[in-house]
């Protein structure tokens, strides 16, 4: 749980670091993409911190080229 909170704190820190500049420069598109990526990253990292079992990305390659896992 502590590591999950650390991930949330990290995500907040990153938002605080990047978002104000983007808002000031009126970069709406950039801000939207940034938020989507940050949310995805936080969800993944949070799942890792909570020890949720995630699919192995290399399995995509194994599925396509290895003729099934």
């Amino acid at each position: 749980m502590a590591s999950f909170l650390a991930v949330l704190a990290l995500a907040g820190g990153v938002f605080w670091l990047e978002a104000p500049g983007l808002i000031r420069r009126k970069r709406k598109r950039e801000l939207a993409v940034f938020v989507v990526f940050l949310l995805a990253a936080t969800a993944l990292y949070g799942a890792l911190a909570l020890e949720v079992k995630l699919p192995n990305p290399f399995m995509i390659i194994k599925l396509v080229y290895g003729g099934g896992a």
């Binding site: 990526f37 990253a41 890792l48 995630l54 699919p55 192995n56 290399f58």
Partner: peptide, 17 residues
């Protein structure tokens, strides 16, 4: 602004990969 979120995604995928 993409650098840190991408870094986080890479880190997680490396660990589970």
């Amino acid at each position: 602004m993409l650098t840190i979120p991408l870094g986080m995604i890479l880190l997680v995928c490396t660990v589970i990969g």
